[in-house]
Amino acid sequence: MSLSVSVTINGAPHAIELDDPRVTLLDLLRERLELTGAKKGCDRGQCGACTVLVGGRRVNSCLTLALSLDGSEVITIEGLASGDALHPVQAAFIEHDGFQCGFCTPGQIMSAVGLIAEGHAGDDPERIRELMSGNLCRCGAYKGITEAVLEVQRAQQTGNRKDAA
């Protein structure tokens, strides 16, 4: 059986031949493309460490078959920064101590980027906590994570108001 998949990852097109249909998006990234930012925590969709954007939406890459993604655009943590300039969410995580050991951090950041794009949390910390509940942090850095997301949300809202004025 010939199994091929074409995906754009962080802006770069990849045409990949797979020898096995069982490869998940997470395994494709980590084992075949050397993009090890997305982490394999539970591998069962429970921890969120593998979160990436597919078509602009945050999903668990461990529960996605690579083959079913033909034609998709994927953004991973490696694709966020512009050269040496950090993405605002990355900068906010550093500013607010949104991590300790760092294992969950790529997933947290990708989830936060997705949350902000979805636009359902506003600047309500309660809604941010609720909408970030798919990302576990065993160091318990939740307070800093919430503050980091909140700061980027507020900065965007201020920016939007300036744009409108």
Binding site: R57, S111, G134
Partner: peptide, 9 residues
Amino acid sequence: GASAQLRNA
């Protein structure tokens, strides 16, 4: 139900 990531999929 579930998490935001799972609901997106």
